[in-house]
Write a protein that binds this DNA or RNA. Structure first.
Lengths: 146, 146
DNA sequence: TATTGTTATACTCTATAACTATA
DNA sequence: TATAGTTATAGAGTATAACAATA
């Protein structure tokens, strides 16, 4: 396996590979909670924003309305999320007690997972990353909803 | 849309969102070449490693053997990649003239795309990213092939 | 008219297991 | 026995268009 790969010198490629590694690590950490990444993030956003709508959750997480449906459905089927009609077309989402328990456990694991990486990087470089990544994200996609 | 999102303080989340933005931007840049990201990277690796096997390409790009099959098939159907039997079980991959033309064009666009982001970040921060992202990638996934 | 949630559908990438034909 | 390529299949995330009910 002596292939060269000049993509190693590309930021987008490095970003994608690094992101994949962290996603895989997170997946392993959350596997036995039977939570997919998209579900955990949804759960955590609802946890800190009781009575939000599913459109709003989608907006902060960049998940399209249509794709929020099966995520919310599954979380409700598992008894982790409840919703209450607000005005006949929108719902207010909240966590159940079970949902809060799972969210707390997930958060603890995310903490461990994150710490593994930030300790490896060291505080100064971690700070640079937290400054740079939002800059990259600020480049408009042109395909945002709404 | 006044929701809070404490995931903004998570490295893995920032990485994923930033990666998604760059992928979307690359996708737009390559759209009219009818090349998907996985296909471009494959094309470029073959370009710089004539006579490599498809297993080798998969190894440097972290694409599983089974998933290389449809990628190579499509590139061959389009007349961009050729292969020559090596020993009855493996092939040597090379680009056709058409493949080289497309690869050159893709490379030029990737260059533009990358420059948009690295100029926004500035050289010093870009260097930090190129130092940090491989560190993140060095965390073993446990699910590598072979 | 615009918005919320929904359905249906398709695409891209990824993952696993099992097979073949070689070596 | 191990390897290269393949098949089949499933999962996860993402994308679009269109619809009903409501505001």
């Amino acid at each position: 396996m002596t292939l060269t790969n000049s993509l190693e010198g590309r930021l987008g490629y490095q970003l994608r590979r690094a992101s994949a590694v962290m996603m895989a690590d997170l997946g392993r950490e959350l596997a036995d909670l039977d939570l997919r990444p998209a579900e955990v993030t949804t759960l955590l956003v609802i946890a800190e924003n009781p009575d939000c709508s599913q459109t709003e959750v989608g907006q902060v997480l960049a998940i399209k309305r249509a794709n929020m449906v099966p995520i919310i459905s599954r979380l409700m089927d598992r008894g982790l999320v409840e919703r209450r009609r607000i005005d006949g077309r929108s719902h207010a989402l909240t966590l159940t007690d079970a949902g809060r328990t799972i969210a707390d456990e997930a958060l603890a694991r995310i903490e461990r997972h994150e710490t593994r990486f930030t300790e490896l990087l060291g505080a100064p470089d971690t700070e640079v990353l937290f400054r740079c990544l939002p800059v990259i994200r600020s480049v408009r996609s042109g395909d945002e909803e709404g």
